[in-house]
C-alpha cells in the first residue's frame, strides 16, 4: 500500500477516534452539564440526608435545575451541609424556598426538590436555604407507626 493511502486512512482513524470521544463525552457522559460554570451555588443544612449522593439531581416542579456538588458533615450543628449548584437560567428562587429530599419512586435515587416560597427577594450566590426538610428514613417511619399504634391501643 502506498504511503498516501495509508496516511489518509490514519487520518480517518484519528477522525473516527475524535468522533467516538465526542459521543462518549456528550451523549454517554455528563461533560455538558459539568461546564455549567455560569451557575451559582447555594447551601442547605439537613438533619438527615438519607441516601443523598453528590451529583444528585436538584429539581423544581420536577424539572432539573441543578445538582448537588458537595456533602459534608457540620460537626458544630450536628447537621449535614449540602452544597447545590444551580443553573444560571434559574436564578429567581425566593428567599423562603424550601429544600426537601425526596425519593424518586419506591426504590429510586434521592434528589432535592425546591419548593419556591412567596418572598419578593431572590436567593443569591452562596446564600443558605434555611427551610429544609430531611429525607424520610424508612426505618424511622416504621418505628413511628409501630410506636403510635401501640400507644393508641
Amino acid at each position: 500500500m502506498n504511503s498516501r493511502t495509508s496516511e489518509i486512512l490514519v487520518g480517518l482513524f484519528m477522525l473516527l477516534f475524535l468522533l467516538a470521544m465526542f459521543v462518549l463525552a456528550m451523549k454517554v457522559s455528563n461533560l455538558t452539564s459539568l461546564n455549567s460554570s455560569e451557575g451559582y451555588t447555594l447551601t442547605a443544612k439537613f438533619e438527615n440526608i438519607g441516601g443523598l449522593k453528590e451529583r444528585a439531581r436538584v429539581s423544581a416542579s420536577g424539572v432539573r435545575v441543578g445538582e448537588v456538588t458537595r456533602i459534608i458533615y457540620d460537626p458544630e450543628n450536628f447537621e449535614a451541609m449540602v452544597t447545590l449548584r444551580l443553573d444560571k437560567a434559574f436564578d429567581a428562587f425566593p428567599l423562603d424556598t424550601t429544600a426537601s429530599i425526596y425519593t424518586s419512586g419506591l426504590l429510586g435515587e434521592q434528589y432535592i426538590g425546591l419548593d419556591p416560597g412567596a418572598e419578593e427577594d431572590f436567593l443569591q450566590n452562596d446564600d443558605e436555604i434555611t427551610l429544609t426538610q430531611s429525607a424520610i428514613v424508612l426505618e424511622r417511619l416504621i418505628g413511628q407507626v409501630l410506636f403510635s399504634r401501640s400507644g393508641g391501643s
Partner: peptide, 15 residues
C-alpha cells in the same frame, strides 16, 4: 436509555 446513561456516567471518572 440516553438520559439515565447521561446522568450516571461521569466523563472524568469513567471515560
Amino acid at each position: 436509555y440516553w438520559s439515565q446513561m447521561h446522568s450516571s456516567v461521569s466523563f472524568t471518572h469513567d471515560v
